[in-house]
Design a protein around this nucleic acid. Structure first.
Lengths: 116, 116
DNA sequence: CGAATTCGTTTCGGGACCGTATCATTACGC
DNA sequence: GCGTAATGATACGGTCCCGAAACGAATTCG
C-alpha cells in the first residue's frame, strides 16, 4: 500500500515535525547531519567517509566534522578498517539507534494528527 | 483517509527529502527558518514577530534574524501595521509561495517512491 | 624500493546562527 | 503631557559550520 500524501498534507507534516524538533531542547542536528545519520541507520553498511560524501554530494571535511559532532553525542562511532587501514568505518550505537527510532515515532505521530 | 506511515517509511522519507535538499544547490534554510516559513504559509495571517516567537517557543531576535535572511532571499516581506505601528506584519511573496510549493512537491514525490 | 594515489583529517579564513541584554519607536493609562 | 508597557530591531560574545587547501598515514604500482 503506497504512501499517499497530498502537497498540503506534506507541508503540514513537515511543519509539525520541524516545530516539534525546534521546541524540544535536545541538540538539533542540521539538515546535513540528519541526512548523514539517517543514511548510516537506513542504508546497508559498511559506511565510509568517502562513501557518505559521495552519496550526499558534499566534501569529505563536511562528513568528518559531522562525525566529530555526532560522535561526541554518541550517535555514531568510528573504527579503523583492518583490511585497509586508510578507511574509517562508521557504525551505529545504541544511543543513535534510540535517537533515530524516536525521531521516526515523532514523524508517524504527526502524520496521524494531520487534518484531512 | 488518514495518512498511514510506518516508522521505517517515515525515516526513509525524511532521509530522501534531506538528501534532495542537501544535494540541490539552492540555499538551504535551517530547521528554524523552515519552521517559520511553513508557519507563515500554512497558518492563517496575520503573522507578527511576537506571534511567531511564541508559536515556535523561541526568542524574538531569532525571528527577526530569520526574517532578515529570508527577506533577503525574497521568501517573505515585512510591512508596518497601520493600526499599531509597533507591529510588523509578515506577508508571503510570489517567490516564497513558489519555494514552498516546490518543497511540498519534493516531499510528495519522495513519498510515492518509498519502498513498501 | 620509491613515486604516485587514496583516504581521512586538520588548518585557515570567513560566514551563519544563537542567547542575553539593550535600544528606539509606538501605544496607552493616569 | 508623562511615565509605563509593548513591539521589533540591534549589539555583543560566543559556537558551530563551511569550502579550499594542505597534511600525515596507508596502499598501490612501476
Amino acid at each position: 500500500m503506497p504512501v499517499v500524501l497530498r502537497p498540503i498534507q506534506a507541508l503540514r507534516l513537515w511543519q509539525q515535525v520541524c516545530l516539534a524538533e525546534v521546541q524540544n531542547e535536545l541538540p538539533d542536528l542540521g539538515e546535513r547531519q540528519l541526512a548523514i545519520l539517517l543514511t548510516i541507520y537506513l542504508d546497508p553498511p559498511p559506511h565510509t567517509v568517502r562513501g557518505l560524501a559521495q552519496k550526499l554530494n558534499v566534501t569529505k571535511p563536511v562528513i568528518t566534522r559531522a562525525l566529530d559532532r555526532m560522535g561526541a553525542l554518541k550517535l555514531v562511532s568510528r573504527h579503523r578498517d583492518d583490511h585497509d587501514r586508510r578507511n574509517v568505518l562508521i557504525r551505529r550505537t545504541v544511543e543513535g539507534a534510540l535517537f533515530v527510532e524516536r525521531f521516526g515515532d515523532v514523524i508517524v505521530a504527526k502524520a496521524e494528527e494531520l487534518p484531512l
